[in-house]
Design a protein around this nucleic acid. Structure first.
Length: 877
RNA sequence: GGGCGCGUAGCUCAGUGGGAGAGCGCUCGCUUCACACGCGAGAGGUCGCAGGUUCGAAACCCGCCGCGCCCA
């Protein structure tokens, strides 16, 4: 932006890459590990999947974290934004499997060692592009110190935690019900399970004869094939229909096994016949019931999705679906089917493979969580870890109070292989392989969340006692979406307390989820997602983002500042819909700031030094308002109220600074104006602008950095400059009062002009007959284009053609060619009507005994003052 | 089934006891010498519905309707 004179628009596409390069070159993103975590500021980024591409959630979270990091860096704290990526077991493995498929080979064919090698190669080539995208948003992560959850040092931390927890008895191997993904042939975590609503199945009613031969019990199921694994029938303990039967046995058709009839609260009496077949081997709820009642757990569906030998010769080897058909047919033969009806319900599917989850029991590694959960609950209860908004604390605590063992093994090849070796009946657990021949390592890897749980301290070098750990742990803030509060945040608290001997962060900020304009989630497959960089640099606008004013097509290149501003302005404590208008507002703000700076720089000249040197009421006013916006913005960012921070800056810059202050002082900058005043005004303008840029920097870093460089007398980068604190000696309530009144008066006068149809350029002669304008009358006149004549004793009233009410009195309009007297009269009538109505209202209120007696005195007094004001205005007009 | 949240201007959202707000959109006016990504002025709302508490409710309480999310 060399030619300030000519360029009237801020051009982010030209400016932002240049500024970014300068930031990265200067190296401030990497703080030296010195001092204590209490003095320093740190945030650990939620590590994006190494396969990841930037989505709106990343962009929002990036902006939030960057605003926090920047504001604290400007406070002079060593600010470290811990950066890295997650190896993301399943997602990454799938990517490479797909690649192999396209090459006509497969994971099984090339073998484990080769495969893992290929994943590393893939990661080298494609991994971490998301980090480049973070840069484009202006995120000042510590790019010089990037971590990966499979770095050697990180692996060491993971293995140590596993071994320690094993030795402490918290990690164990057990047969347990897992979410089995038949497509991946692995257990998957709850996070990767998607509940699909509206799945239509057939609900079969099947008769199980009583062993006594005396009747039957009818049960309902959508999965008849699982009956082969039934080990009980359950009813509700209060269900009178079955009260006498509990304790008896039924005979399982096709199999002949005798099943006890048990009573359990879980059963809903009003569903079907009130009797529930219990299949502990293939249903999570039945599994729980089974464990409560000590039932056998039979598995008839194998990990390959085929029926096992336990299903019996007739069914073994069939797929579950084939088995279902055969079971139904066989039951029909027995005349055991009592009914079938369509049944709509919710069914778990794997997000990864898209296949229906097959709940089954398998031998897995588990982690006992109750002992770890207790201190993590206390940390939040006592406020050591504060969750914002606070409503999320309860979700966190509820979840931890009802926590279950965590299945930490995954049947994958990409990840931290479980550090357990087997030889015959022997088991060895240790960070390195045992001595001796014939040991074989457990083939499974750990759930990705196991390693993520160590993120805030493993990235800083734990288990070594490093300088980094000293300087940056615990971190200050963790910012994340609600969806991983349990899967990640809670686990980090547990692991941090257990292993790093302190909470991992003081504050957790749970940010909004940004939805598509139609309220659906943003998703590639739905066509509702947008690439944040398409907003920054221009790119496709999907159809759902079109509106009456916006055709589908391409987004203009709004720039990173606009996107950051827009995202923060949109954000809230709840989910919000994406609004392009807010991004546009950010763009407008950047442009406004640019032009305001241009104006000041071109008028003030290079020699001026920035300093607050107020001479007039408007100078005192803007300095006073500046103190307010500095304080408000800092408090809002610190309080995680990012929307108010962003919009507050907009209001100050657009409204108070540009619309009012710059407009008012324009005449004082004219060529023929008083040079002394010009000089002090220049100093004040520069001061206000500098502090405004610094205050806005954490939200819109690029434009503020660029403009900082254009201001005379600045040296160094804004990003590493100090944040200006509010100066109470510059707060001036009297100036705010006077200017507030003046602004209201200008609005009244402009509204009147418009209504009466005064020619836009015309200067209206008038008398200002109002109090409180001693210091502002000429400003009001200039902005509203009124020429206030001194009130002469005689002859003045003669020419009065209209009266306009303003705070503190009125303006008497004198006769002139530009004023349509008839319109003015209509305007006056309108105003009188409004005033009478309002007076009536106020009177009524004050006559209300209840109000006068019970409302706070200040409120009553305010009402009286208001009534007085209205009356005097009515009198004046 | 349990829990949490939401319903305010055409759209996206602020406002959480004392005269309904912002941005965008819309209408009218303005080549006002920083900015037409601009300036100025307007129109537009029975604050989901029905009760209650209160001198006073968009806000607090109860119920209903609609929408969303989480857990089961």
């Amino acid at each position: 932006m060399a030619d300030l004179q000519q360029r009237t628009r801020f051009e982010p596409a030209e400016v932002e890459p240049r500024i970014l390069a300068r930031w990265l070159e200067s190296g401030f993103v990497h703080p030296e590990p010195a001092g204590t975590a209490g003095e320093n500021f740190s945030i650990a980024i939620p590590p994006p999947n190494v396969t990841g591409a930037l989505h709106m959630g990343h962009a929002l979270n990036c902006t939030i974290q960057d605003a926090l990091v920047r504001i604290n860096r400007m406070r002079g704290r060593r600010a470290k934004w811990i950066l890295g990526t997650d190896h993301a077991g399943i997602a990454t493995q799938r990517q490479v499997e797909k690649l192999l498929e396209s090459e006509g080979t497969s994971r099984a064919e090339i073998g484990r060692e080769q495969f893992v090698q290929r994943v590393w190669e893939w990661r080298e080539k494609y991994g971490g592009q998301i980090i480049e995208q973070f840069k484009r948003l202006g995120a000042t992560c510590d790019y010089e110190d990037e971590r990966f959850t499979l770095d050697a040092q990180y692996v060491e931390a993971v293995l140590k935690v596993f071994v320690d927890l094993y030795e402490q008895g918290l990690i164990y191997r057990d047969n347990y019900m897992v979410n089995w993904d038949p497509g991946l042939r692995s257990a998957i975590s709850e996070l990767e399970v998607e509940e699909r609503e509206g799945v239509v199945d057939t609900l079969y009613s099947i008769a199980y004869p009583l062993a006594s031969g005396d009747g039957e019990v009818v049960v309902a199921t959508v999965r008849p094939e699982t009956m082969l694994a039934d080990t009980a029938v359950a009813v509700h303990p209060d269900d009178e229909r079955y009260a006498l039967l509990v304790g008896q046995e039924v005979v399982l058709p096709l199999v002949g096994r005798r099943l006890p009839l048990i009573a359990d609260d879980y059963v809903k009496s009003d569903f079907g016949t009130g009797a529930l077949k219990i299949t502990p081997g293939h249903d999570p709820n039945d599994f729980e019931i089974g464990r409560r009642h000590g039932l056998d757990e039979i598995g008839v569906i194998g990990e390959d999705g085929l029926m096992t030998a336990a299903a019996g010769e007739r069914y073994a080897g069939l797929t579950a679906l084939q088995a279902r058909d055969r079971v139904v047919a066989d039951l029909e033969q027995l005349e055991a089917i009592r009914g079938r009806e369509p049944y709509v319900h919710t069914v778990p599917f794997s997000q990864r493979s898209g296949e229906r989850i097959e709940p089954l029991i398998s031998l897995q590694w588990f982690m006992r969580m109750d002992e770890l959960a207790r201190p993590a609950i206390d940390a939040v209860r006592c406020g050591h870890v504060q969750i914002h908004p606070d409503s999320q604390s309860r979700r966190y605590i509820d979840w931890l109070e009802n926590i279950r063992p965590w299945c930490i093994s995954r049947q994958l090849w990409w990840g931290h292989q479980i550090p357990v070796w087997y030889r015959g009946d022997e088991t060895y657990v240790g960070a390195t392989a045992p001595e001796g021949e014939g040991w074989e390592q457990d083939p499974d890897v750990l759930d990705t969340w196991f390693s993520s749980a160590l993120w805030p301290f493993a990235t800083l070098g734990w288990p070594e006692s490093t300088r980094e750990l000293q300087a940056f742990y615990p971190t200050d803030v963790l910012s994340t979406g609600r969806d991983i509060l349990f899967l990640w945040v809670a686990r980090m608290v547990m692991m941090g307390l257990r292993f790093a001997e302190d909470i991992p962060f003081h504050h957790v900020y749970v940010h909004s989820i940004i939805q598509a304009p139609d309220g659906r989630r943003m998703s590639k497959s739905l066509g509702t997602g947008i690439d944040p960089l398409a907003l920054v640099e221009g790119g496709p606008r999907p159809p759902v983002y079109a509106s009456s004013s916006r055709a589908p097509g391409d987004f203009p290149a709004y720039g990173a500042d606009a996107v950051r501003f827009g995202l923060l302005a949109m954000s809230s404590t709840q989910d919000v819909r994406f609004s392009e208008e807010k991004v546009q507002q950010g763009q407008a703000l950047a442009n406004k700031l640019y032009n305001a700076t241009r104006f000041v720089v071109l008028r003030v000249g290079d020699h001026a030094a920035a300093a607050p040197q107020p001479r007039t009421v408007e100078d005192r006013w803007i300095l006073s308002r500046l103190q307010a916006i500095k304080g408000d913005t800092q408090a809002r960012v610190d309080g995680f109220d990012f929307a108010k921070a962003a919009l507050g800056l907009y209001d100050f810059i657009y409204g108070e600074l540009c619309d009012w202050y710059l407009e008012i002082v324009k005449p004082r900058l004219a060529q023929d104006a008083d040079p002394d005043d010009r000089a002090t005004l220049g100093a004040t303008l520069l001061h206000v602008l500098r502090e405004t840029l610094a205050t806005a920097h954490p939200v819109i870093p690029f434009v503020t950095e660029e403009l900082w460089g254009l201001l005379p007398g600045t040296d160094g980068q804004l990003a590493t400059s100090s944040l200006p604190a509010p100066d109470s000696t510059l707060s001036d309530p009297a100036a705010e009062l006077a200017m507030g009144r003046a602004i209201d008066a200008v609005r009244q006068l402009r509204g009147w002009r418009d209504f009466v149809g005064v020619r836009p350029g015309a200067i209206v002669p008038a008398l200002l007959q109002a109090e409180g304008y001693e210091r502002t009358a000429d400003r009001v006149g200039a902005l509203a284009r009124f020429a206030f004549r001194p009130a002469t004793a005689a002859g003045a009233d003669a020419g009065e053609v209209a009266t306009i009410g303003v705070p503190g009195g009125s303006v008497a309009v004198l006769e002139s060619a530009d004023v349509d007297v008839g319109a003015a009269e209509r305007r006056l009538q309108e105003r009188r009507t409004t005033l009478r109505k309002e007076i009536e209202r106020a009177q009524k209120k004050l006559c209300n005994e209840g109000f006068v007696a019970k409302a706070p005195a200040a409120v009553v007094e305010a009402e009286r003052v208001k009534l007085e004001r209205l009356r005097s205005e009515l009198e004046a007009v």
